[in-house]
Amino acid sequence: MQDEDFVTIRLTVNGGTHRLVVEPRRLLADALREDLGLTGTNLGCEHGVCGSCTVLVDGQSVRSCLMFAVQANGHEVMTVEGLARGGELHPLQQAFWEKQGLQCGFCTPGFLMTAYELLQHNPNPSEEEIRSALSGNICRCTGYQQIIEAVQSASQAVAGASATVPSGTGA
């Protein structure tokens, strides 16, 4: 409801809440990278094709170059910095490391966030489903195969982890 040059917004990013004063035109990607110092999210094309800047907003993958920070006001954002917990890599990060699903690493945060969303909806995806889910992320280094292997491996790791939870916990 503001028509000033700047607006005040509240972003919850990786669990922490931040108050930011931004121009309405400030892209979410720039708010994350420059205002919050979360430079893991990379800008590869700024027109929504490459997927490098993919983050989760309320659990859904979005291009942070095609969303204004003001539109995330009051919403929950998750970036690559939110994956590892207490120095422990997330199973997806671990799997990308083991399968070497990355080379230069620039597109990697986008792939991780896209794959994270996929595994939330579909804990045991087929290769076809992985390819379809990742088809909006461009990697110029790997030829994708080791990324697919990493997602497969992570899905097994996640499935394995939940299988070890004692029955009766509802897991």
Binding site: L43, V80, L83, Q93, W97, L102
Partner: peptide
């Protein structure tokens, strides 16, 4: 062996030129 470069790249900590402030 797993690449030595990867932990920083996977967690968003690696500093690319665009990250310099």
């Amino acid at each position: 062996i797993k690449r030595r470069e990867d932990p920083d790249l996977l967690t968003g900590r690696a500093e690319y030129t665009g990250d310099v402030k």
